[in-house]
Each structure stands twice: as C-alpha cells, then as structure tokens.
Amino acid sequence: MEGSLLELKDVGFNYRLYSPKIINPFFKKEGLGIEKISMRMDPGNIIGLVGPNGAGKTTLMKVLAGLLVPKNGIIKISGKLIDNNERPLWAKKLIGMMPENINWYGTSTPYQEIKKILIIRNMNTRNINFILKQVGLNNKANETLNSLSQGMKQRLSLACALIGNPKILLLDEPMNGLDPVARTAFNQILKNLAESGRTILISSHQLAELERVVDSIIVMHEGKIIEEGKIIDIKNKYKIHEDLILKFKNKVGNLRTIMSNFKNESLNFEELDFDGFVQVTIFSPNKGWSIDQKMLILEHFIDNCYTPYDFSSPKITLTDILSAVTGLDATKIGMNLQRGYYRVEEE
C-alpha cells in the first residue's frame, strides 16, 4: 500500500437531518450518507467517480476534502494518518477541491476572488493572470461575477482548485455547463495535470464524458462503492457490450434467415418499424465483439442486398453499468434510491 497519496478504509458519514418533534423541536435523525468506503488514489491517476443522483459522490468528495467529518473509518494522506475531527493544514495544502455548481455572483471579479485564495494560501498575488490563463479566463479577469456564464463560473471554480498546485484534485461534476470546446480543453488540462504526477478524482453521472480521460472508475450506489476498476474490465466482467443498430429505408425481408446464416453464430436481434424507416438492433454476444466483427455483419447485410443507410453502436451508459452491477432493471435504479430514503424515514 506504499506510494498512495490518499487512502480510505471503512469510512462512513451520515447527514443529520432536522426532524422536529413536539417534545424536542431540535431533534435530528440520521439521514443518508456514505458507508464503509475503502479506496486509494495513486500519483498520476485519473479516477472517475460515477453514480446516479444521491449515490453519495458529493458526500465522498466532501469527506476527502475535509469539509465533512467522517463518523468512522481511517483516512491517510501521503501515508500519514489524519485526525478525522480536524484536518491539518499541511494535508489541506495537498488537496484542491472544485465543489459542484458554485454560484459565483456579485460585483466582485475573478481577479479579486483568485487574489483572496492566493492570500489565504500565502502565495504571490502576481500569479493571478497566469492562473486565470490556465483556465481560459484571462480576458474576463476584471468582469463582474454576475456577467460570467455558467461555463465561465465553472472555470473559475477550477482555477480556485488549481491554486497552490495541489497533489490531489477533487473535481465534483466539473463538466456541468461547459460547452464541447471547453470540455475538450478541460480534458487536456486534466491529462496534463495527471502527467505531472497529480491524482485526480472526478465525479460525473455521464460515463461517456469520463471514458476519454479516466484510468479507472469507482461506481457508487446508495452510499456504497459497488464496483471499481478499469471501464473495459467492468464491461467484460458484467458482459456489458455495445449493441449494433442498423437503419434501413424499407423492411428487411427474411431477416431471421439472414441472421441465421451469419457465421454460424446465434445472435439475438430485434426489428422495429418506425414511420419512414426500419431499425434492426443486433444484441452483442456475451463476450463482446470487435470492430471487425461489426463490419462483417454490415457486409453480410450488404451481400444479401440490404444496405443500411445508418449504422451505429451506442455507447454504454452509466445506467447500463448500474443495472448490470446492481442486478436492477434500468428504470428501477432511481426508484431504488427512493426506497433508500423511505427506509431512513421508517427508522
């Protein structure tokens, strides 16, 4: 376990929710949170934290950043055991946090906000323009926060997290509000930071968004880590593979015969009639398939005189992984979360 920048063992946290009673108007009951979280972050890694709303991603981020005090478990930063009740300042210096959806508003400017953080960190305030340039905000340095778009506010939050070159970066839903160009630039920033030895934990409920940058993912559900590892390994473990979708202008005659003639493989398929086109979905085999195999299917259809006008293979989503890992139907994953809340109410 040596060399790990951040390590958690059986860490738990529960929110205390106000639940006024007649005899005790200040009564608080235990709400949702995170349970028995064990994980480690090594230098130079980008880890994706995925899960549906309410899974505990933000809570875990806050515990890691020292914003929430865990009720149990052990946290080690740079190999040193941390006092859960009061995060030491040296440990805080190692972590940069970008919280979710910071609502920057008022007549202050990005320049002034960065200056304040630099003063807090006792750093040279001459670096402000360099920091703003890193996130593409240098030409907005002296504009009021009120005039910034959501994407620019996200960039300002990122700039705050980058101050002091922290070794660990915690980014909570950083892509929210970023346009596609900014996302590409953002991904590049992340890769550069990881190459320079920083460890990044980035949360999102958009798996496709993370796939391009992360080395591995942690899947959370109902406050627990239910799976972790490389995306490809998780896909293989749970046999989650992309299906093939072919679109034809006319109905495919003898589809069953065409499919049964394909390389002696029994592939499941589905044909749906839409207004103006026909969609044939060929479900992936358990072991998955390569691009070459997909191309062979396409050629097979063309050989049988059916040329699709569209050919696609939709990306695996978080829902696909969650339903595979939890064994729940995709439409019921959100409902299961609600059951979690009801369970707390009953307590």
Partner: peptide, 19 residues
Amino acid sequence: RISGLLAIEFCQPISKRIL
C-alpha cells in the same frame, strides 16, 4: 453558504477561526 463559496474557502489551508 448557499452559493457554495464557503466550501471553497473551507477547503483552503487556513484555520476556520481566522476565516
């Protein structure tokens, strides 16, 4: 607190008392 700025300040290496 509502806007989330407090979270950014609390993450910084500074005593909350001074803040």
